[in-house]
Amino acid sequence: MITMKDIIRDGHPTLRKVAEEVSLPPSEEDKQILNSLMEFIQNSQDEEIAKKYSLRPGIGLAAPQINVSKRMIAVHLEDDNGKLHSYKLFNPKIISHSVEKTYLPNGEGCLSVDETIPGYVPRYARVTVKAYDINGEEVKIRLKGLPAIAIQHEIDHINGIMFYDHIDQENPFKEVDNASPLVK
């Protein structure tokens, strides 16, 4: 089981590396790692388990965050309509996106970043992602709203990009061109 001790923190060199493709079909070891990423996210959202193991709640986790420089991510959250979006993905890639952008008015957080970094993080409002599921089958996923933001955040991790890289350093709360805030 992954705990907060296993999650590497901001400044660790693995977080800035472009992660390697996972060879397909995925090995048992890679499947195990991907399943453990999802297990952590689901446990972090369960109040009792989170309290017992001192887990910070999260909605996504990428393999580089546990010091495994491979292209695998897990995302688990509900959208505004209460629909569950739960994805364990190998080699995810954004293949198309909207022109329109969005951002979270309160900014983004990250399990690898201990402090709050204020500012707007511009993201595409809608994305289509191509990836491979736990069995190595190709999947195509269309997302909007918070699930789209979460998957972009995790794909950034496998590309060595941190969320705060997107924040305007001069003016963190500058209005984002062609964007509307995602309001819950």
Rank of each mutant, 00 (worst) to 15 (best):
E39W: 04
P64S: 10
I33F: 07
I95E: 06
S27W: 01
D114I: 12
L111C: 09
E108P: 03
S27R: 02
M72S: 03
I141A: 02
D79R: 02
K130A: 14
G136Y: 00
M38A: 10
D46R: 07
E47A: 14
L104H: 01
I73R: 00
S69N: 12
S112H: 09
E28D: 14
C110P: 01
D133R: 07
Y120A: 01
R123W: 01
P57N: 12
G107L: 05
A125V: 06
K93M: 13
V129I: 15
Y124N: 11
E78I: 05
E137A: 12
S27E: 11
T128R: 15
G58Y: 06
L55C: 07
Y103Q: 05
S96R: 15
T128A: 08
K51G: 09
Q42M: 13
K93W: 04
G136D: 02
E137F: 10
N91E: 02
I59C: 01
L111Q: 03
Q42V: 15
K31A: 05
R71Q: 15
V127Q: 05
A62K: 00
P57S: 11
I66C: 08
E39C: 04
A125F: 07
N106W: 10
L111T: 02
H85G: 08
L77H: 00
P122E: 05
L37T: 01
H97K: 15
R142T: 14
L89E: 05
N81I: 07
E137V: 11
A125T: 01
P105M: 05
S44D: 04
I73A: 01
Q65A: 07
D30N: 14
V113S: 04
S96H: 11
L84P: 05
S54A: 13
N43F: 09
L89H: 07
V68R: 07
L55T: 00
G58K: 03
L84H: 03
K101I: 02
N43P: 10
G119S: 05
D79C: 05
F40N: 00
S96L: 10
G82T: 09
H85N: 14
E48S: 13
Q45K: 10
N67V: 09
L104A: 08
K88V: 06
I66Q: 10
K70T: 08
K101V: 05
P92M: 09
H85P: 05
E100P: 02
S54R: 11
A74T: 02
I134A: 02
Y124I: 02
L104C: 10
K101T: 03
E138W: 09
I49K: 13
Y87S: 04
Y132E: 07
L34E: 01
N81L: 13
I33T: 13
R142S: 15
S69W: 08
E28K: 13
R56I: 12
E48I: 11
Q65P: 04
G107N: 03
M38N: 11
S54N: 15
G82H: 10
K52A: 13
N91K: 12
G82M: 09
I94A: 03
G60L: 06
Y132N: 09
R126S: 13
K88W: 05
R71E: 08
E138C: 04
